[in-house]
Design a binder for these strands. Structure first.
Length: 643
RNA sequence: GCCGCAGUAGCUCAGUGGUAGAGCGCGUCAUUGGUAAUGACGAGGUCGAGAGUUCAAUUCUCUCUUGCGGCACCA
């Protein structure tokens, strides 16, 4: 007999050789039905795999997030089986579970098309119906390599060859189809269910390396039941409606066109939003004792050579040549220019920390495939700043920065964001002791600021560790917005120095930091976050004065004027249209407030206010001057509201 | 940059080897209507660009270009 202990502490006796499935069946029929796999002494374990002896056993069911991961992984396996049944000669590679689904990478000369999906899905359903047991087998490493090579699966053979010698080679069999896999899997294909759907095909490099062959990746989604699948598809549909490219067009905020790839034509509405954001940031920075500067966009290559950008970043820089052969580059970053300002005159340790900010226009020749609406552009403006400081000021400056960033994000509607901590890369400048200190300073500062970080090992810049502040777009894609990077290298390369307490010259440390990242990307995220329904202070048009009859035209213009004098972005709509039409149109245009004026309001000098999306607040009738005061209060930017 | 898919009116989209159509929007006229679409009429397209096949190409083929989805990239 063996004794198993359940998560709640309860103990049960089972005969030798019993499996987690036997355990589940012993507890209840429904549990046995819902169970997908087990965790035995903390290790993932197939339900039908005999227990190793006395053990702590936890059963994972369909309702649990971890269970879903296994369903997705299993679905990837049946996708691979279905594809190989339908398209002989296709090689399989890898197929993991990912957020919301799974993918599988195939090697095949002919491209897959979404038109193949129906047939593949049908075959997958068929494999589920076959209810093939997943059988775990431990193979000899060389036998496995020989086997996969003999059937032409060179990618699988390569995978096995690269597994550490100590690793057990496990193969899972489903019917006559086998795959190299760590497991665990469900007892049989029938348990997967049919709440899956293939979503898209895409190219993907073997092992994520662009020097390798391009494989064909099929993405799919899979859920515990049909209902979850339906909800997921609906969520995607809803999210697509928030796409900033779509909303931006509908609201006339900006456009882009062929002749200026990756650059933005800001229209009146979008530029109003942009300037509102810029003014807000300027106030926030001023309050934190930043100075603001403006530096040239075109700078001679010699400076970029000195800074190291020409060598490291030259591929991504736009250049211009003068008639006498001088080569200039559009700045991809502001840092070298800021060092030039720092270098003018004498700097003392008393001047540090010196916080130099710029809304800096940068240009980068981004790879064509990377361009994406406002999120990834070739011409953009960073809310950039460089903090020149002493090494022992890094921690305080970082803490202050994180506090500022957190407050700005909260003002802009983002309470949740991810912080990634990228530490020393393999090739780096600076000695290990310096890196130790820099990383510790950053870690301590994040802890002091109370933010949790996700480690991103080896991804730091060559000149220092960095923090990345990541926001998520409507479709779940992550975008780095804020950043803070510690730099010991550039001050040295560009010869920045200050006089220390000791009277000697020293190198300052530079902190490169941005909160929004770029106005373009951040506005893209902002549009998606609010689905275009901006809070009053950000809305391009804050209020429309809509007339019911032309008799109220004169009064409507009076109202518009009064609202404008009160600092509001108001527009009068005197068109010869019904009020229903106007309300609908401006509501769809996401104008936060509509002031309706008819004969009655004109006589009484009142306005009837209608608030977007706030059913309970509809129809507040008030005197014009009271409305001006109330609305300008509501339209006050959050930082000014606090002060 | 790589793989795949796509480009038809301002927008969303239908369609065809014989030079195009809808809805919305736009314009004109009528209507002055109290909180999510008033009606009638009208204008508007080198069917992304170039080349090829063909008696004939928006439609088929190729190249380019841009967009979309991924991958790679994001110093």
């Amino acid at each position: 007999m063996i004794e198993v202990q359940l998560p709640d502490g309860a103990k049960r006796e089972l005969p030798d050789g019993a499996s987690p499935m036997d355990l589940a069946e012993g507890i209840s029929k429904s549990l046995a039905k819902k169970a997908l796999y087990a965790r035995v002494n903390g290790k993932d374990w197939d339900l039908v795999r005999p227990l190793p002896g006395d053990a702590k056993v936890e059963l994972v069911t369909r309702d649990q997030a971890e269970g879903l991961e296994i369903i997705r992984h299993d679905t990837a396996h049946i996708l691979a089986q279905a594809v190989q049944e339908l398209f002989p000669g296709t090689q399989v590679t890898i197929g993991p579970a990912i957020e919301d689904g799974f993918y599988y990478d195939f090697a095949r000369d002919e491209p897959f098309s979404t038109e193949d999906f129906e047939a593949i899905e049908k075959r997958m359903a068929d494999i589920v119906d076959r209810d093939l047991p997943f059988v775990r087998e431990v193979w000899d490493r060389n036998d496995a390599i020989r086997h996969f090579e003999s059937i032409g699966e060179k990618y699988k053979a390569e995978l096995i060859r690269d597994l550490p010698e100590t690793e057990e080679i496990t193969i899972y069999r489903q019917g006559d189809w086998i795959d190299l896999c760590r497991g665990p899997h469900l007892p049989s294909t029938g348990r997967i269910g049919k709440a899956f759907k293939l979503m898209k095909v895409a190219g993907a490099y073997w092992r994520g390396d662009h020097r390798n062959a391009m494989l064909q990746r099929i993405y799919g989604t899979a859920w515990a039941n049909e209902n979850q699948l339906k909800e997921h598809l609906q969520r995607i549909e809803e999210a697509e409606k928030r796409d900033h490219r779509k909303v931006g067009r509908q609201m006339g905020l900006f456009h882009m066109q062929e002749e200026a790839r990756g650059q933005v034509f800001w229209h009146d509405g979008g530029w109003t939003l942009y300037r509102t954001l810029e003014n807000y940031m300027r106030r926030r920075l001023q309050a934190e004792n930043y100075q603001e500067v403006k530096t040239p966009m075109l700078i001679d290559r010699t400076l970029w050579e000195k800074s190291g950008h020409w060598e490291k970043f030259g591929e991504n820089m736009f250049t211009a040549q003068t008639e006498d052969g001088e080569v200039l580059a559009l700045k991809p970053m502001n840092c070298p220019a800021h060092v030039q300002i720092f270098r003018t005159g004498q700097r003392s340790y008393r001047d540090l920390p010196l916080r130099m900010a710029e809304f800096g226009s940068c240009s980068r020749y981004e790879p064509s495939g990377a361009l994406h609406g406002l999120m990834r552009v070739r011409g953009f403006v960073q809310d950039d700043a460089h903090i020149f400081c002493l090494e022992n000021q890094i921690e305080d400056e970082t803490k202050a920065f994180i506090d500022l960033l957190t407050s700005v994000y909260a003002d802009l509607g983002f309470d949740d964001f991810i912080v990634k901590f990228s530490d020393r890369p393999e090739t780096r400048a600076g000695d290990d002791a310096t890196w130790d200190r820099a990383e510790k300073a950053l870690r301590d500062a994040t802890a002091a600021a109370g933010v949790e970080v996700i480690m991103n090992p080896g991804e730091g810049a060559f000149y220092g560790p960095k923090l990345e502040f990541v926001l998520r777009d409507a479709i779940g894609r992550d975008w780095q917005c804020g950043t803070l990077q510690v730099d010991f290298v550039l001050p040295d390369r560009l010869d920045a120095e200050f006089t220390g307490e000791d009277g000697a010259k020293h190198r300052p440390v530079m902190l490169h930091r941005a909160i929004l990242g770029s106005f373009e990307r951040f506005i893209g995220i902002l549009i998606e976050n609010y689905a275009g329904k901006f809070p009053m202070w950000l809305a391009p048009t804050q209020i429309v004065v809509a007339t019911i009859t032309s008799e109220a035209d004169g009064y409507a213009l009076e109202v518009e004027k009064a609202l404008k004098v009160a600092g509001l972005r108001a527009k009068a709509d005197l068109r010869n249209e019904k009020i229903n039409y106007k309300v609908r149109e401006h509501s769809l245009a996401k104008v936060p407030v509509i002031a309706v004026v008819g004969r009655k309001e004109a006589e009484e000098k009142t306005v009837a206010l209608r608030f977007l999306g706030e059913e309970g607040r509809n129809q507040e009738v008030m005197a014009l001057d009271a409305a001006c005061e109330k609305l300008s209060g509501e339209a006050t930017p959050p930082d000014l509201k606090r002060s």
